[in-house]
Deep mutational scan, measured.
Amino acid sequence: DHDVVPEDKFQETLHLKEKEGCPQAFHALLSWLLTQDSTAILDFWRVLFKDYNLERYGRLQPILDSFPKDVDLSQPRKGRKPPAVPKALVPPPRLPTKRKASEEARAAAPAALTPRGTASPGSQLKAKPPKKPESSAEQQRLPLGNGIQTMSASVQRAVAMSSGDVPGARGAVEGILIQQVFESGGSKKCIQVGGEFYTPSKFEDSGSGKNKARSSSGPKPLVRAKGAQGAAPGGGEARLGQQGSVPAPLALPSDPQLHQKNEDECAVCRDGGELICCDGCPRAFHLACLSPPLREIPSGTWRCSSCLQATVQEVQPRAEEPRPQEPPVETPLPPGLRSAGEEVRGPPGEPLAGMDTTLVYKHLPAPPSAAPLPGLDSSALHPLLCVGPEGQQNLAPGARCGVCGDGTDVLRCTHCAAAFHWRCHFPAGTSRPGTGLRCRSCSGDVTPAPVEGVLAPSPARLAPGPAKDDTASHEPALHRDDLESLLSEHTFDGILQWAIQSMARPAAPFPS
């Protein structure tokens, strides 16, 4: 592969990997390779389809078979030569091979799209000592099968071997295949498990690692696999990028399955594409389908809103127990993405979901129960707010008499603000006073009005108090039968009158 990737590009890729991570280095090298001529790309395919690569990765054979028959990708048995050289000459001794072996032994695996480039050397060096003999053996194999790289107009793939297949390693990572398949204008990513390549439709969760975000852009890794992070704060999961590491605690105790298979379609829109997988259930989501939507993949363990709600429900009964003089119970939860139609709101002032922060849900004790107040519409209280300059209440639009249902020339009671006709409430011909108009209920007259088809109010509507207090003497005590009587009149003013009279009014101040 030294004929494909020059030394300066190799060093530039290593520097970019240390600065921005393996995914960015892979993407940059792939983009550079696509700008080369067809001879360089053909050399790339020839390096990929060597015999030892085909033996190690069985899924490469179907890719090789898909090439046109007129494309010669065979390799000479006596060494490598550029395709432009007409004579089959043995190339001179390859010093770059020693360079590659020494550099890969030092860096474990470079971040390139060629056999030198995919593992994360920093994480491997940190986690190597417990498994040094086995990992050293794996390093000797890295130059042979560490990076199976493929690129063409139909298929483009980048393979990364790992030393996680050490025997006896619980939940060992089998390997990473960062794979971009450009077929019919689409893009897919796969993962390699035990020599087999699994596409998103049959993606397997190998051991402790999972394909957290099938994305090839942005600074985030394709698999949430930063070796420096180790395990999740809650004892979460091992990262795919942690090559040759000792077994780590796999999943939280509440995880239903340690080796679950995540779905390959969004649980909201039932469509495929780039998904984020939940650590607590097999569901996966688009970032845009979450509520609120996320802009980037959160670091650490992530769970959907259903799993978060289940966790909150487990903690909430203990938080609601009476604990005198104790601060509110704080339950730190990872930043969760909410699927459509589901929402768990945190306290005000918290950062938005999706940031690399930890939301704190506070379970406050329930407030003391209070008697429910009568629910009145805002339009129902409008007549009470229509007060004239002299303190006389004006008529609201649409006000109707509670007896006849007519809204023409209605009066407004100064005591309960109900609309009424003087002739309907006082049919006996009582003279109307000039000021202080009161309806039949507030004036103490319980004589029913002779209106055909309208039920008369119940005599129990009024329960006047002592006459010594004029204001308190007109406080009506309405009961269920009074409400039914008012409802039978089918008037809004009657219902409003009952609601206003049912509310307690402050006692009249004593004259000074």
Rank of each mutant, 00 (worst) to 15 (best):
Q242M: 10
P247C: 05
A248S: 10
P249E: 05
Q260G: 10
Q260H: 12
E263L: 07
D264I: 04
C266D: 04
C266G: 05
C266R: 05
A267V: 11
R270D: 05
D271R: 08
G273D: 09
I276F: 12
C278I: 05
C278A: 11
C281Q: 04
C281L: 08
P282H: 10
P282W: 15
A284C: 13
A284R: 09
H286E: 14
C289R: 10
P292S: 13
P293A: 06
P298C: 10
W302I: 10
R303I: 06
C304H: 15
S306P: 12
C307T: 15
A310E: 09
E314Q: 09
E314K: 11
E314P: 12
V315K: 09
Q316F: 08
Q316V: 12
Q316S: 13
E320R: 12
P322N: 11
P324H: 09
P324S: 09
Q325R: 12
P327M: 13
E330S: 11
T331I: 07
T331F: 02
P332E: 14
L333G: 05
A340E: 13
G341Y: 05
R345A: 08
E350K: 04
P351E: 14
G354C: 07
M355G: 08
T357E: 00
H363A: 06
H363L: 15
L364V: 06
P365Q: 14
P368L: 06
L373D: 07
L376H: 05
S379P: 06
H382P: 11
H382D: 07
P383N: 13
L385C: 12
C386G: 09
C386V: 13
C386F: 15
V387I: 07
G388C: 15
P389I: 13
G391C: 14
L395T: 07
L395P: 09
R400V: 05
C401P: 03
G402Q: 06
V403S: 03
G405A: 13
D406G: 09
D406N: 11
R412G: 09
T414F: 06
T414V: 12
A417F: 13
W422Q: 11
H425P: 02
P427H: 11
P427R: 07
A428I: 07
A428L: 13
G429H: 09
P433K: 08
G436H: 13
C439F: 03
C439N: 02
C439Y: 02
C439D: 00
S441V: 02
C442P: 01
P450S: 07
V451C: 03
V451R: 08
E452N: 06
V454N: 03
A456V: 09
P457I: 12
S458G: 07
R461L: 04
R461W: 14
A463S: 10
A463P: 08
P464I: 12
P466Y: 12
D469E: 09
T471M: 09
T471Y: 15
S473R: 07
S473W: 04
A477I: 00
H479G: 06
R480C: 07
D482P: 06
D482E: 12
L483A: 05
E484R: 10
L486D: 03
S488Q: 04
F492Q: 00
F492N: 01
G494C: 06
I495D: 03
I495G: 02
L496V: 08
L496Y: 05
W498N: 00
A499L: 10
A499T: 13
I500C: 03
Q501D: 01
M503Y: 01
P509Q: 09
F510T: 06
